[in-house]
Amino acid sequence: MTTTTTTTRAPVRRAASVGSGRPHGGPPSARRRRERLYQWLFLVPASVYLVLFFGYPVVKNLIMSFQDYGTATFYTGEAPWVGFDNYAKVLGSTIFTTAALNTALFTAGSIVGQFVIGLGLAVFFRKKFPLSGVLRSLLLLPWLIPLIASGAVWKWILDKDSGALNQFLEALHLVPNGVPWLTSTQLALVAVVGVNVWIGIPFNVTILYGGLQDIPDELYEAAALDGATGWRSFWNITWPMLRPVVNVVLVLGVVYTLKVLDIILALTGGGPANASQTIATESYALSFEQFRFGEGSALGNILVLISLVFALFYLRASRRGVED
């Protein structure tokens, strides 16, 4: 950038012609302005989209959470302002602690399971072997089946009395009689996490496999010459080289998992006795089963806030990555 500006110009004009590379205004500044206009025009579609489909719902949800927003509101349009009442109600309700704890366990369990298995499979598929392409694409299957369909099938597989899993385990004499996967307060959350891991594996494998492709083979060859193979090469080459991708996978995974709704609804509906109730399912129940939209959106906002914290962690982690 060249900045040959004349000192006699008014500050405004100067600002306009900065970087134009010409000491005289007139036509260049007009061109500059036109350029500016074009820049804005290019921004308009994206901004309109963002405001309409992200800005509006977020703001509306925020406002809703401070209102007594019920069924009547839809017809009359009246939603009295109630301040922090909705937040006080949802945070003070007996179910909140259970739901928060379940959300934490569900998210942690799902992420660990998905990531470890996903990474293992990604590393495994890095070695080319016959049919590896076919197998890798088959792995995407859980991702391609509609969640409602896979939820219904899993509900049947995990059924206590006639489920396929119990029949299999009983045939192998591993368990004496039906394990109540979905109807025991101790096992329901475990079962739901298991199914969610199954759903999350394709996402993890795909992204991690992509990250692995970017690691140059020469590194491994050089390391092999120095005697580093197997675990050594994984810890000293694969893991550090993959870290940026790992960050993305984990943070996106956390954000996706926090809000998981359909699979829990399909499997247990949050039961038994709220054993698999998460903040997301409780927020859904408040809004769309009991039609207490104010409280539902308050709980939803709390979930958004938690996601936001993780997003900040991610930003910090990635910045540190760059500084390193």
């Binding site: 509900k155 009395d161 006639s162 979905l182 109807t183």
Partner: peptide
């Protein structure tokens, strides 16, 4: 009664009955 009742809908209850379970 099976502890499955905790997760059954009325259609599932009917399936159990029809299957003789």
């Amino acid at each position: 009664a099976s502890s499955g009742v905790l997760n059954w809908k009325q259609a599932d209850v009917k399936d159990q009955f029809v299957a003789g379970k």
